[in-house]
Simulated assay, not measured.
Amino acid sequence: MSSQNLEFPQWPQFGDEERVGLMRALEQGQWWRIGGNEVDLFEEEFAGYHGAQHALAVTTGTHALELALQVLGVGPGTEVIVPAFTFISSSQAAQRLGAVAVPVDVSPDTYCIDVAATADAITPRTRAIMPVHMAGVVSDMDGLGKLAADAGVPLLQDAAHAHGAEWRGKRVGDLGSVAAFSFQNGKLMTAGEGGAVTFPEAEQYERAFVRHSCGRPRTDRSYLHRTSGSNFRMNEFSASVLRAQLSRLDEQIETREKRWPVLSALLARIPGVVPQGDDDRCTRNPHYMAMFRIPGMTEERRNALVDALIERGLPAFAAFRAVYRTAAFWELAAPDESADDIARRCPVSEELTRDCIWLHHRTLLGTEEQMHVIADVVADVLGRS
């Protein structure tokens, strides 16, 4: 098997669009958002692309979550329901505000938050429910929307994996709830770091703007800081790169949407391999990761398998660890129960912690022939392990 067959497109991708944007930002002479134009224009373009009324660009995806939760009233004495299987930022964004993150289990098919488990976790202290659109699969926004409306608890979509995703033909910014995005180096569009929050209401956007700028209104000249906040402002250079990245996103999504059904079917033919499932109501999946499980595999064997895949040229990774299985989860605003207590109600997340693998989305920008090569490598390495 030729190593050339595994020479996938590099990530991040860039070209003259990014170069022109960086020079444009440089030459305007103002490199922060208050004096420049790039961040404002990016926010307008990003909001429009996602069907949102408003978008606020920020420093990181983690900060996007934290800021959004603060706008929704999350703080000490409140709880935020999060999927147990997710990147740690989903829980830490709530915990750093003094709120208790309450992990619940996920679907064994899509790996997205389970609606019934979420319903069971709601208490009078619940202030937000945070579905994570895992690897680009949109969570069950029908079930979650009804649950949130009945309970009077807002949704905050963690859309770090879901740039350009659609649920029933609507982009995630057009689903009536706040959504947070990440532009970290591995994400579907990137400036190395960065984030954004989309809002359905102008009042939410304005409150978020003040908080992301140290509590200072946009036109303030007298340091009349209106509320607590931090400096989450995006700079002009990052915004100029992200404007270019946004312009190439549709073409990349179209390629990945063609490649994943091919790869998924090939992986499913390998004994013991189960690819991540989808939801027919998710009408556009941008495929942040190519995820699959090997049920029954131990964590140690899974990790060794990932190492072997990397040695064979695949950009492979062990999947996320359930958030309650990390030391970080227990440092701030920890729930009044043990990790084993939580694990008993999160059996799927426990399994995913042990047996799930993901491939970087740049593999899905490869050729259809390369999808066959990927499956052959997975089958060969698994057979040898």
Rank of each mutant, 00 (worst) to 15 (best):
R125H: 11
L242A: 11
A208F: 10
D220T: 13
I88S: 15
Y223P: 06
S182Y: 01
L97A: 03
H133T: 14
E166A: 12
E27A: 06
Q10S: 15
L22A: 13
Q30F: 14
P124T: 12
E203Q: 02
G383F: 04
A208C: 10
D40R: 13
G77M: 10
E368G: 08
V172K: 00
G29N: 13
C112S: 12
S107K: 12
L266H: 03
P200F: 12
T110G: 06
H133M: 08
G164C: 01
A68I: 12
A116C: 08
D280V: 14
R216G: 01
F42W: 02
C346Q: 02
A334H: 08
G215S: 10
G21L: 14
S222L: 15
D16E: 14
L156F: 09
A334G: 08
Q70L: 04
D340V: 10
G35W: 08
V262H: 04
G77C: 13
C282W: 04
D114N: 00
A375Y: 02
M289T: 15
F237T: 01
L175N: 06
Q70N: 14
Y288E: 10
E299K: 12
P271A: 09
G229F: 04
S230Y: 11
L97F: 06
A316S: 07
A202V: 09
G152A: 07
A239C: 03
I374R: 15
G173S: 06
H372I: 01
A47N: 07
V137I: 15
E201R: 15
P335S: 13
S139D: 12
E79S: 05
M289P: 05
N231I: 10
C214Y: 07
V210Y: 02
E45I: 09
Y288T: 09
Q4P: 02
E300G: 11
E27F: 11
E66D: 00
S228H: 11
D380E: 12
A57P: 00
G29M: 12
P108H: 06
D140F: 01
G21K: 03
D150V: 08
T227C: 15
Q70G: 15
R19Y: 01
E368Q: 10
H372P: 00
A191Q: 05
A99I: 06
Q370N: 05
W358H: 15
L249Y: 10
A179S: 15
L144C: 05
P103F: 01
G186A: 13
H225E: 15
E236D: 09
A68Q: 13
H287S: 05
Q53H: 14
E311S: 14
W260M: 13
V106G: 00
E166M: 14
Q28K: 12
A319V: 03
A333N: 09
G21C: 11
E299A: 08
L224E: 02
I342M: 06
S3T: 05
A304L: 10
G75P: 03
M297G: 00
D109L: 13
